[in-house]
């Protein structure tokens, strides 16, 4: 794995967010201010413009460069949060790259994001997807499951976490101003995180299933 693998993930993330642009915008207009998906796309597009530099680096330096670029491009809450995730991953000691060192990197990246956002599970944010996913990732890499089983467990955990935000009251971010009025709506950050994780799992598994059919379904349920 190297900077090329990082860019493959960026391309997969960009494609899936572009595909679900309207759905995420609708979720965000319901409980936020509608800018999440545009900020995310602006950040991913900035990384795509930086392709030659990122691809020329080893894995962790590529994550580090991506983190700085996201921090100076996105703004809002997503900028510092996503930059913290990638920076935390880049800074985790990893003598060799394998699934357990990747799981450790992801875990400390998510911890750094949670520290920056001062949030945890149950607050109707992207951490409701990322924390459970990091737990499953770590648990299963220490057992002897196949890579297919691992990827499918991660996707399930991400989807469960995303769906669980629907019944939550937000205590962080702009949706927190709504109190009870945010209940019944899926968090847009949780949805975008779940989409990106699923897209990366599919990339790793070499499967490129189209999940377009889910889009309107979730937007409809959220409304």
């Amino acid at each position: 794995m190297n900077g090329k693998s990082v860019m493959e993930c960026v391309d997969a993330a960009h494609a899936v967010i572009e595909q679900h642009r309207d759905e995420i915008a609708q979720l965000d207009q319901a409980i936020g201010d509608g800018d999440h998906v545009f900020n995310l796309l602006r950040g991913l597009e900035a990384l795509i413009e930086l392709r030659p530099q990122i691809e020329g680096l080893e894995f962790q330096p590529a994550l580090s460069l991506s983190a700085s670029k996201l921090l100076s491009t996105i703004g809002g809450s997503s900028g510092p949060l996503l930059a913290s995730l990638l920076m935390g991953m880049a800074k985790t000691p990893a003598p060799e790259l394998n699934s357990s060192s990747l799981a450790a990197m992801f875990k400390s990246g998510v911890a750094m994001m949670a520290a920056r956002g001062k949030a945890g599970v149950g607050e109707k944010t992207m951490l409701d997807v990322l924390i459970p996913v990091s737990e499953t990732f770590e648990e299963l890499t220490s057992t002897h499951v196949s890579s297919d089983q691992l990827l499918s467990a991660i996707k399930t955990r991400a989807e469960d976490g995303m769906l669980a935000t629907r019944e939550m009251i937000a205590t962080k971010g702009r949706a927190s101003f709504l109190g009870e009025r945010a209940v019944g709506h899926i968090d847009p950050g949780a949805r975008s995180s779940q989409l990106i994780i699923t897209a990366i799992c599919d990339l790793v598994a070499g499967r490129h299933e189209s999940r377009a059919s889910d889009a309107l379904e979730y937007a409809g349920r959220g409304a």
């Binding site: 900020n39 921090l71 703004g75 809002g76």
Partner: peptide, 11 residues
């Protein structure tokens, strides 16, 4: 100035 309704960045 940030983007419309979006915080500016640390840089």
């Amino acid at each position: 100035p940030g983007q419309v309704f979006t915080s500016p960045t640390p840089d």
